[in-house]
Amino acid sequence: MTQLGIVTDLNRCVGCLACTVGCKMINDVPVGNYWNKTLRIGPSPKYQGAGPDAVDMYFLTVGCQHCANPACVEVCPTEASHKLADGTVQVDKEKCIGCQFCAMACPYGVRYLNEEERVVEKCTLCEQRTVQGELPLCVDTCVGLARWFGDLESGDYSQLGGAFGMKMGDVVEPYNQSDVRFLPDVGNKPVFAYVLRDMAWIEDMK
């Protein structure tokens, strides 16, 4: 079984927005919409009473999580939203009727209606690139080597690929399993993972 996806090392992300800009460019995402949105979390005090020189902040990239049990697929009346054998969730525009049930069901708000085409769109994990053995552009353009792509099924992320031909295990600093987090799970089982170390004040995303 395969589950393609992305792991992001939040301690390495510098918030440069290269992933967000590259995604909009290559996928022709309409103005005002995003397939990959970069959020700033913080600054927050490291401890109660901390001054302005003792704060934590990180950048969180949010897009389709290509969930193991996607709610968007469940509610789609035409099977336009579907899960492929590689684990990705895709939208067949030929079948989409623009009802937006999937957009309402998505717990992360990462789908939108393309007003011109009247179909729902979202991250495809750059299927047009990955089928040719290339990286999703958001991974390929990550100058901080924070984003890594590959099969997440085994849970061993060390061999995931990144920009400049690097492997995750050769670049990222050590982390514990407790440092691996996911966006909130409401039964959809998000698969994209986030590594975040040494920020005890953060409510666990798992």
Rank of each mutant, 00 (worst) to 15 (best):
residue 2 T to D: 09
residue 5 G to F: 02
residue 5 G to D: 06
residue 6 I to T: 14
residue 6 I to Y: 00
residue 7 V to P: 01
residue 9 D to G: 01
residue 12 R to I: 01
residue 13 C to A: 09
residue 14 V to N: 08
residue 17 L to T: 13
residue 20 T to H: 10
residue 21 V to E: 03
residue 22 G to A: 14
residue 22 G to D: 06
residue 24 K to V: 04
residue 25 M to Q: 13
residue 27 N to P: 06
residue 28 D to V: 15
residue 29 V to S: 07
residue 30 P to W: 09
residue 32 G to N: 08
residue 32 G to A: 08
residue 32 G to P: 06
residue 33 N to M: 12
residue 39 L to Y: 14
residue 44 S to F: 15
residue 44 S to Q: 13
residue 46 K to Y: 02
residue 46 K to C: 07
residue 46 K to W: 03
residue 47 Y to Q: 11
residue 48 Q to G: 11
residue 50 A to Q: 06
residue 51 G to V: 00
residue 54 A to V: 05
residue 54 A to N: 15
residue 55 V to K: 00
residue 55 V to D: 00
residue 61 T to H: 06
residue 63 G to W: 00
residue 63 G to T: 12
residue 64 C to V: 09
residue 64 C to I: 07
residue 64 C to Q: 03
residue 64 C to W: 02
residue 67 C to P: 02
residue 67 C to L: 04
residue 68 A to P: 01
residue 69 N to C: 07
residue 69 N to P: 03
residue 70 P to G: 07
residue 70 P to R: 04
residue 70 P to D: 09
residue 71 A to I: 07
residue 73 V to M: 10
residue 73 V to Q: 09
residue 78 T to Q: 12
residue 80 A to K: 05
residue 82 H to E: 10
residue 83 K to D: 01
residue 84 L to K: 15
residue 84 L to I: 10
residue 85 A to P: 05
residue 90 Q to T: 10
residue 90 Q to D: 08
residue 94 E to D: 14
residue 96 C to Q: 01
residue 97 I to Y: 08
residue 98 G to L: 11
residue 99 C to S: 12
residue 104 M to S: 12
residue 115 E to L: 13
residue 116 E to A: 12
residue 117 E to H: 07
residue 117 E to A: 13
residue 118 R to V: 10
residue 121 E to R: 13
residue 121 E to K: 10
residue 122 K to A: 11
residue 125 L to S: 04
residue 132 Q to S: 13
residue 139 V to T: 06
residue 140 D to G: 09
residue 143 V to A: 11
residue 144 G to K: 02
residue 146 A to N: 00
residue 148 W to R: 00
residue 148 W to L: 02
residue 149 F to S: 00
residue 153 E to L: 07
residue 157 Y to S: 01
residue 159 Q to Y: 07
residue 161 G to N: 10
residue 162 G to V: 04
residue 162 G to F: 03
residue 162 G to T: 05
residue 166 M to Q: 15
residue 166 M to N: 12
residue 168 M to T: 01
residue 168 M to L: 12
residue 171 V to L: 07
residue 173 E to V: 07
residue 174 P to C: 06
residue 174 P to V: 04
residue 174 P to S: 05
residue 176 N to G: 12
residue 177 Q to L: 12
residue 180 V to A: 02
residue 182 F to M: 10
residue 183 L to A: 08
residue 185 D to N: 14
residue 186 V to N: 13
residue 187 G to Y: 11
residue 190 P to A: 04
residue 192 F to C: 06
residue 192 F to H: 13
residue 193 A to H: 07
residue 193 A to D: 03
residue 202 I to D: 02
residue 203 E to Q: 14
